[in-house]
Simulated scan of single mutants.
Amino acid sequence: MRQAERLSWALTALVVGTWLALVEVFWLPLRVGGVLVPVSVVVAVVGNLLLPAGALRWSGSRLVAVLPAVAWLVVALGAMVRRPEGDLVMTGGGATGVVNLAFLMIGVLAAAFSVGRVLAGPRRPAVSPQNARAPDPAGSGTGGAR
């Protein structure tokens, strides 16, 4: 049962990381009133910081926790490659190029920081009803103050 649960968390982490990266890539050229709005950069930082930590908390596996960052990187790098038809999602000129570069650099930095924190930190057990328990009571347990 544990392997099936871990596999489902791995699939969930991959799907969420891929979906978030796709949304961010297609938000890159977002303009409001003709002004470029770099919302993708902010979402990339927040997503890349929160997803690995959340995946570790829920799955209890460091390998599963790394998957959203890897999926994000694959999608971001894939958006820079020209397709055979000539389509290119991430272009490199003008203000859009600056936002694209900031998206890549800051997004990768946030993902690397989060993955490093997940891999270096103590292992946390997965949160589930079976291993959830009440917190330990405060105090010495003798009934008197010391």
Rank of each mutant, 00 (worst) to 15 (best):
Q3S: 11
A4V: 09
R6C: 03
T12D: 04
L14C: 09
L14S: 04
V16S: 05
G17Q: 03
T18V: 09
T18K: 00
V23G: 07
E24D: 14
L30A: 11
R31E: 12
V32W: 07
V32R: 06
V37M: 10
V41I: 14
V42A: 10
G47N: 00
N48H: 00
L51F: 10
L51S: 13
L51N: 15
L51G: 08
S59F: 01
S59P: 08
G60Q: 01
S61G: 10
P68K: 09
P68T: 08
A69T: 11
A71I: 10
V75N: 15
G78Y: 08
A79I: 09
V81Y: 13
E85G: 09
E85R: 10
G86Y: 12
D87I: 08
D87A: 14
V89H: 02
G92T: 09
G92M: 13
G93C: 06
T96W: 04
F103T: 00
M105C: 12
I106T: 14
I106Y: 01
V108C: 13
L109H: 04
L109Q: 13
S114V: 03
V115R: 00
P122V: 14
R124S: 06
R124M: 06
S128N: 14
P129M: 09
Q130V: 15
Q130N: 04
A134T: 15
P135M: 11
D136R: 04
P137Y: 04
G141F: 04
T142K: 07
T142S: 15
A145Y: 02
R146E: 14
